[in-house]
């Protein structure tokens, strides 16, 4: 689980081209959007594509997305549950 969290942080920083943020500096339970990491709706689209591309897990609708995109913790749990 911890390994997946680190992988996710790497992907988010690298593929969303976040500047001035180190993967290790992202808190596991910090909000990903708005006041947390500062991601926006454009990033949400890219994040859906990245999760599909790297983990072969599809986020189908806003209910799933809203629950999964709360933080690194929730996104990790979502991916873990879908991969099984």
């Amino acid at each position: 689980m911890q390994e997946l969290k680190e992988q996710l942080k790497e992907i988010i920083v690298r593929d969303l081209k976040l500047q001035g943020i180190e993967p290790a500096g992202i808190e596991d339970d910090a909000p990903l959007f708005e006041e947390g990491l500062g991601l926006d709706s454009l990033d949400a689209v890219e994040l859906v594509v990245l999760v599909q591309k790297h983990f072969d897990v599809q986020i189908e609708d806003m209910d799933e997305g809203q629950a999964a995109f709360k933080s690194i913790n929730t996104l990790t749990e979502f991916i873990e549950a879908r991969r099984k």
């Binding site: 709706s41 689209v45 599909q52 599809q58 189908e60 609708d61 799933e64 997305g65």
Partner: peptide, 15 residues
């Protein structure tokens, strides 16, 4: 008018 303005469903549909 939902979470992320329907972008998640739209991404899935395009996928």
């Amino acid at each position: 008018d939902g979470f992320m303005g329907g972008m998640i469903e739209s991404t899935a549909a395009l996928g």
